[in-house]
Design a protein around this nucleic acid. Structure first.
Length: 464
DNA sequence: TGAAATGTTGGGGCG
DNA sequence: ACGCCCCAACATTTC
């Protein structure tokens, strides 16, 4: 082994070469860069097969990209502390550069590592770091709207960073193979494709985002969440490009749409901040009083919900889309979540876990924030009495039933008049369209009007 | 980033 | 012509 010095670029949730501040800081040392991804069992066991597969696909892609830049990816598995100490010695490293992560596990892990080796934490996971957006009194926000105003009150100090031309390497380091994986049919891996998809969305679709985002049967959302989760896309870069696109718009609607989409990026920052500042949200309700809800927690209902067999077409369509693809439309997520918490009176944490087990974009901060919001127990929460009516939501956001028919084959021939309420079909018609409610499509497991009242009572009892 | 219950208004049918 | 009722449409309140 030569005694040439190097620096380590520890890749976690920034699987990209573009706009990567940790990589950029590593390159600024003018030393060879050792890119490493550590397969940390503590994290892998909290993931799911679809998400792991997507991760591995992206690691393959990153390795290919690195080789074009004269480098290659090192894979090690085990405890990050030990892996890094070993690699630090093997590569005669000066320092480790990495993107700051604000989850409790990550902060604890990084603190321990920083006490043993020089570890430089760089921003980039969120557009604004949690500590960047505080109230006047120096405390974190707990309500989104004032947070977003403060968030918008300054602009990023520099444009997105370019992909480096070359990344000088250190050779002769051992690497494990990247685990085998197969391409996901809906989310092909790699930052080139991700950036292409972002550009396509910004060029063609974002102008109608506010009009179409809630229509579950329309490609109205960006469908980029898996890429943002793993940092295959830089949120900062996406924000920057969206702002540029906004300058070119003439119609009010297009400008509003772009602002609405940017707002979703701000929500992402908000929940990253909330998890960082209030880590208790992983264990319990953000608002203490909501820990007292007397959940029914009926296992049978939970199974029906997971399987997409509640008898409410839009809820079932969403849950089946989730299980089949690892992704669910955002409006469907809200409707399914409301149904679990309010109609079934099942603890939102059960739903949070199931989503985490199924989602390819499953993100600790966003998933927890979304669930607490739907359950009405989180920051900036929906008032507890706001109960979605799954039939009205269905009529409003899937008017022709195209989404329902896509994910529930047994409802495919049901006329639009009955697509949201198949139990109202005359028996004759049920036979004719081969959808017999109670036989090949389930009866409603609960009647909404009754369930709504029960939820109002249960939630109401937690108040003084 | 609801929905239901309740209240109000106003047009039209009718005696 | 007028008051009365019905009820749809809209607004407000309540959960």
């Amino acid at each position: 082994m030569d005694n040439k010095k190097s620096v380590i670029w520890w890749i976690r949730r920034d699987i990209r070469l573009h706009d990567n501040q940790a990589l950029s800081a590593a390159l600024a040392t003018d030393l060879p860069v050792v890119p490493i991804y550590i397969l940390d069992d503590n994290l892998l066991k909290q993931s799911n097969l679809k998400r792991l597969n997507f991760l591995f696909e992206n690691l393959h892609s990153l390795d290919t990209f690195l080789q074009e830049k004269g480098n290659h990816l090192i894979i090690r598995s085990g405890n990050p502390f030990n892996c890094l100490k070993n690699l630090f010695r093997e590569s005669n490293a000066d320092a480790i550069f990495t993107e700051a992560d604000f989850s409790p596990y990550a902060k604890d892990r990084d603190e321990k590592i920083a006490s043993a080796v020089p570890l430089h934490l760089l921003p980039g996971m969120s557009i604004r770091a949690p500590s960047e957006v505080y109230k006047q009194d120096g405390k974190p926000y707990t309500v989104f709207t004032p947070y977003s105003h403060q968030w918008h009150s300054s602009i990023p100090s520099f444009p997105p960073l370019k992909i480096p031309d070359q990344i000088p390497a250190l050779f002769d380091l051992t690497s494990e193979p990247i685990p085998a994986s197969i391409p996901h049919p809906l989310f092909p891996a790699g930052e080139r494709i991700a950036v292409e998809r972002l550009q396509d969305f910004l060029n063609k679709h974002i102008q109608t985002y506010s009009m179409n985002r809630d229509l579950v049967g329309v490609e109205g959302t960006s469908n980029l969440s898996p890429y943002f989760h793993f940092g295959v896309l830089s949120a900062r870069s996406a924000y920057y490009l969206a702002e540029l696109q906004k300058q070119d718009q003439v119609s009010i609607q297009a400008v509003n749409s772009i602002e609405a989409w940017i707002n979703e990026l701000v929500w992402r920052d908000f929940y990253i901040m909330i998890l960082s500042e209030f880590p208790h949200v992983l264990k319990e309700a953000f608002r203490e009083s909501y820990n007292r809800i007397a959940w029914r927690n009926a296992e049978v209902d939970f199974r029906a919900w997971k399987a997409g067999e509640t008898g409410y077409p839009l809820v079932d369509a969403g849950m089946r889309q989730l299980q089949e693809t690892g992704w669910m439309h955002n409006r469907a997520r809200m409707i399914a979540a409301s149904f679990l918490c309010k109609d079934l009176l099942i603890n939102w944490q059960w739903g949070e876990s199931w989503f985490n087990e199924q989602l390819i974009d499953g993100d600790l901060a966003a998933n927890n924030g979304g669930w607490q919001w739907c359950a009405g127990c989180g920051t900036d929460a929906t008032p507890y009495f706001r109960v979605f009516n799954p039939i009205i939501q269905s009529r409003k956001f899937d008017p022709t039933g195209v989404y329902i028919r896509t994910w529930i084959p047994e409802l495919r021939n049901v006329p639009t008049q009955f697509i949201h309420t198949p139990w109202e079909m005359p028996l004759e018609l049920q036979t004719k369209v081969r959808c017999e409610v109670g036989k090949n499509y389930p009866n409603r497991i609960i009647e909404h009007a009754f369930a709504r009242q029960r939820a109002l009572d249960a939630y109401g009892r937690t108040r003084v």
